[in-house]
């Protein structure tokens, strides 16, 4: 087995070839699968609506599309969507920043970690939805309460992951840096933080998904704009087709943002991310 391998053959095989292939053939297959899957999904839905379920309860995709066109043209969807997106963006960014700063400190200072951990473990079970009533009382029905709720939903995911990333920085890596002459602060800045990046990004992705789940109830219960409000207003008027347009918008926004986030991370942080899968 072993005698056939030279170092160069190994690297070629390990890293180069699969990457090049994935650009051409590898990307095509999932895309084709997605097209097939969605076609089948819409076909079944179109058939079910009318044949199996009343089209009023489950409007067919064709009807949803018909409803969506004027809503798109008038800018109604765009307006609500951009309001929701902005709320998610502000709350998510604030939550991530606070969580990363707190997390790297907590992961490093044992005492702070030991003191804060029980409190966090207790608070994390309060979902953003559970916090809506008190958020409205504290911050009113305006933007601040929405920012707060998204912040609340983001901060624990990112915090817990950041702490884990800091604490799991391999000891040999830190000791090697120490032998190479790094001070404690230098180890923290140049070894521990870069080593935590994949964990932090994972936490942020989960938090991003959760943000999209929490913005909807927040806007349904306490807002007069945003996709959640559109959903709620349509429900009051029993306009099921408009409800489905709103639901489709939520899915599309969530999906697009996650992909955008992943793309940005791949671009900006690929040095820190590339190895996290191997090793």
């Amino acid at each position: 087995m072993a005698d056939r391998i030279t170092d160069d053959e190994l690297t070629e095989g390990v890293a180069r070839r699969p990457r090049r292939r994935s650009l051409r053939l590898g990307m095509l297959r999932p895309a084709a699968m997605a097209v097939i899957a969605f076609s089948a999904f819409f076909a079944v839905w179109e058939f079910a609506s009318g044949q199996l379920i009343s089209p009023f309860l489950l409007p067919p995709p064709s009807k949803v599309a018909q409803t969506a066109v004027p809503m798109l043209e008038s800018g109604e969807i765009l307006r609500h969507a951009s309001i929701s997106l902005w709320r998610v963006f502000v709350g998510f960014t604030l939550g991530s920043l606070v969580a990363i700063v707190l997390g790297v400190i907590m992961g490093r200072l044992r005492l702070v970690n030991e003191l804060a951990d029980p409190v966090i473990e207790f608070l994390r079970y309060l979902s953003p939805t559970a916090m809506i009533p008190i958020a409205v009382i504290w911050f009113g029905i305006g933007e601040a309460s929405k920012y707060f709720l998204i912040f609340w939903g983001t901060v624990f995911f990112v915090l817990i992951n950041t702490i884990a990333g800091v604490m799991r920085t391999p000891v040999p890596r830190q000791r090697a840096a120490q032998c190479l002459g790094a001070s404690r602060l230098q180890i923290f800045l140049t070894v521990v933080i870069p080593s935590s990046v994949p964990f932090i990004v994972t936490g942020m992705r989960v938090a991003m998904a959760s943000s999209f789940m929490s913005i909807i109830p927040a806007e349904m219960l306490a807002a007069n704009s945003g996709i959640g409000y559109l959903l709620q207003a349509s429900a009051i008027m029993v306009q099921t087709d408009r409800i489905f347009v709103a639901l489709a918008t939520i899915s599309a926004l969530g999906f697009a943002t996650d992909r955008l986030f992943r793309f940005a991370c791949d671009r900006l942080l690929h040095r820190y991310m590339a190895w996290s899968g191997s090793n």
């Binding site: 391999p170 000791r175 032998c179 190479l180 190895w275």
Partner: peptide
Amino acid sequence: RMMFFQDAGSALFPW
């Protein structure tokens, strides 16, 4: 005194 670890992958800076 420079220490060298068995698991070079975790001792190196992968980024």
